[in-house]
Design a protein around this nucleic acid. Structure first.
Lengths: 301, 301
DNA sequence: GGATGCGATAGGCTTGGCCTATGATGAAAG
DNA sequence: CTTTCATCATAGGCCAAGCCTATCGCATCC
């Protein structure tokens, strides 16, 4: 059975006239007659009682028409829904973001994204890198903003902008007197984030350090880490976009001598079909952050 | 778009594997790939994200699947309903019956009909001949039991059985003394039914009378007419099947000299497609009433 | 590095739907 | 009573769409 046949059935039932129904369907009357006849043979039931003057749906036909109409409207709903989904720059877009980036980047890019991609329903999802990659591979995210390269052939990524690190010091720290701080000078009393944050390894690597100090003091989040630095527990590196929050917490920031930093990238599945959306989102973010690296690395905001 | 394509879509979404989905659909894998590709082009949306290892429905696909399933189940409902409607001897059968026949015939034929045609849902409809013919032509009845011939090329009929008339007399009527009553002897004080009952004209014709007597006394129904006769208002002819009711009312019945009577027929639209049902019903009734005419005409039950 | 599994592509075949032309039938009109 | 008209059914030919087998491209696994 064919959807077209159901349309024909509905047309004949509505017009009660083969010629007019055929015209309404855009086919010739003989074609319609043949198709209805086939349908009747398939069903094993007479659908219409024909005379040379009248065409009347049988009781059986009336019983079937409801289902036929349901099928036809359902397929029309499919087409209508597909029309709405056609634009790759429209609809839900689930974007993963690492925790050391989300609270500082999102306020900057929300408005530009809304303006550039008004139909895109952005759903941010904050989680650590490995969780984001898992969700990405599980099709639970459409893309992710990370600060690391991605491995494997199933995922691809593209750099969006460079984010320099800054030395974060308690106000009364000796290094606060310097204009510029060498990364290696922070090793002595450096605090880091808890396991799982990519910023943790990046901080330690930038300072040439393999084992974390501070004993059990491993902050679960960047705000906590900032509070710990402000309270004088030690020093750390913070990503440039967090500078404002750090200053608010009463922390002294200094540029780094070796200009250590990280690259924020957008990652997605290699076969993800809405690549235009990924690229559009990446482009808006990159544009918004263009020139940020130089300013941040040089003058601490 | 084709229903088949929707089935393919559902199969791929369910199996997440083209080869297995193709096997489930009974087609080859290349065919399935091509059809899904076509569907994607028609929709303008990627439906599946393919790698060499995995096939995952896109978000758009998930939105469409519900409608697709609705369409497929609706068409399956069509086929299932059609299967149930396939037997012409099953299902609703609206049978019109004239009022001077219904209450006396139905008790006789209900049981045989139920036994011979257990799947037929008989819906009797009692009305006068012209109303029955109108409803028949309007497709509001499937057949009708009448005591007249039908005119017009759109309706056809077949005789079922002959029903003799009987003279109905008050117990103290002079003619009650006779073994046999001549139709013309009843003319003097004959009562008839109201307009619209075919029995009215048939009675008058049988007695060679063109104008009804009895003034305004025209019974609206046969039971009323019987009561009037029993009360001594006059005489009349009754159809043989009503003999029992007449005797119960205290009326004397006598066979008629000229053996006047009527023929009960079943009528239906010439193009009515469930002719087997009509013929089966007619046959059951004719069989039940076989031999009735001789017995009734001779010995008054 | 060959073997394996999967989806995509190519080419040929057959079915099915469509058309025009014509037939059959019944009703209305001359 | 015959003609004409309207309607649905049938016939024959054409073409697109769907299907199959064979093969390719790609990635993974041993």
């Amino acid at each position: 059975m064919n959807l077209r046949d159901l349309r024909y059935l509905l047309a004949v039932a509505e017009h009660e006239h083969f010629g007019r129904a055929a015209r309404a369907c855009g086919i010739s009357q003989p074609t319609l007659s043949v198709q209805i006849r086939k349908l009747e043979e398939l069903m094993g039931v007479a659908l219409f009682e024909r005379t040379s003057k009248t065409v009347a749906p049988t009781f059986a036909c009336q019983q079937l028409i409801g289902h036929a109409r349901a099928a036809v409207t359902a397929t029309e709903a499919i087409l209508a829904t597909a029309r709405n989904l056609r634009d790759p720059l429209a609809g839900r877009f689930r974007l993963g973001i690492i925790p050391t980036l989300a609270p500082y980047l999102l306020p900057l890019v929300f408005a530009p994204l809304r303006e550039a991609l008004p139909a895109l329903e952005l759903e941010p999802w904050e989680d650590q890198t490995s969780a984001l990659l898992g969700r990405l591979r599980a099709h639970e995210l459409d893309a992710a903003l990370l600060a690391t390269e991605v491995d494997g052939p199933d995922l691809v990524s593209q750099p969006l902008f460079a984010e320099p690190f800054l030395a974060a010091l308690p106000p009364d720290h000796p290094l606060a007197a310097c204009e510029v701080v060498a990364e290696t000078d922070l090793t002595r009393d450096m605090l880091v984030l808890a396991d799982g944050h990519c910023l943790r390894e990046q901080t330690m690597e930038a300072c040439g350090q393999s084992e974390a100090l501070g004993g059990t003091l491993r902050a679960a989040s960047l705000p906590t880490l900032l509070n710990m630095v402000a309270a004088g527990y030690g020093t750390t590196l913070i990503p440039g976009l967090a500078a404002g929050a750090a200053l608010d917490a009463g922390i002294v920031l200094r540029p780094l001598a070796a200009r250590a930093g990280r690259t924020v990238r957008i990652a997605w599945r290699a076969h993800f079909p809405r690549r235009p959306a990924v690229e559009a989102v990446g482009e808006v973010i990159a544009n918004r952050l263009r020139g940020f690296a130089e300013g941040a690395a040089a003058g601490t905001v």
